[in-house]
Design a protein around this nucleic acid. Structure first.
Lengths: 129, 129
DNA sequence: CTAGGAACTAGAGTCGCCTCTAGGTCAAGA
DNA sequence: TCTTGACCTAGAGGCGACTCTAGTTCCTAG
């Protein structure tokens, strides 16, 4: 099954612009070939790959590092250890990010609690209690 | 106790540049007053406030929204409900962010597992087992 | 007195990641 | 035939959050 750039945009949530940008940045595991009129033809694998890249991006992996990873995949078998290393490094970064976010969340939750108590106490007083 | 901009930079981890930038952006709860030669003089409260702002930033609150919040605090009593709303909205965003990050983490962990198994199987085969 | 270092201002520059523009091709439907 | 709409390229533009520069002022130590 082959897909147009518009269809891929739809099912990945990326814009058509972003898809061309990603391609130019070397973030597609296999070269997108072209149909009549030079139009890009994508496959379901491309969509799957893109979905993974979106996950990596969402979790803060920079485009150049996604490119490095993509290049390893493109090279084929034999560099699995390098791929693993990239993934593990990233995993560690995500872990830290989550810890940090949890810390922020704790502070925010604490403050929300304080303000809720305060606002409630005001409301209670207002009805004469 | 009063602190110079350099000292505040040290204890918040922000750069001197960033501190001036934050001030210009209206992100300080009380106006920083100036010492001899027009130099900024900070207090411990400023540092505490900045630390909270850093938490908000780290968790993705945009500078303009921190400014809105700061303005409410500067206005003083009476707008606690609005402050609470800002915090709750942000809390929700952070929650979503964490969920998203967890999703990414799951995928990465899954891939790491696969590559680890594969790399191990290769290593095992290499020693003739 | 002079050199260093920290501070000051206003405003320009940078970085990452898209997003958009301009100007064009092509195929299908009214 | 004409228009619409999806696609194409190369390259410019935008945004958020800093970061850095240039040109000063001021204090302190040697």
């Amino acid at each position: 099954m082959s897909l147009s750039i518009g269809q891929v945009a739809e099912r990945t949530g990326l814009s058509v612009h972003a898809l061309r940008f990603y391609e130019k940045e070397g973030i597609l595991a296999n070269e997108v070939h072209r149909g009549p009129g030079g139009r890009r033809v994508y496959t379901q694998q491309d969509v799957d790959w893109l979905r993974m890249c979106i996950m990596l991006r969402m979790s803060g992996m920079p485009v150049p590092e996604i490119r490095r990873y993509t290049e390893l995949v493109r090279q084929g078998d034999g560099n699995e250890l390098q791929r693993l290393e990239i993934l593990k490094e990233h995993q560690e970064r995500v872990r830290q990010q989550m810890a940090q976010l949890q810390e922020c969340m704790d502070l925010i939750t604490y403050k929300v609690g304080i303000y809720e108590d305060y606002v409630n106490s005001i409301a209670t007083r207002a009805v004469g209690q």
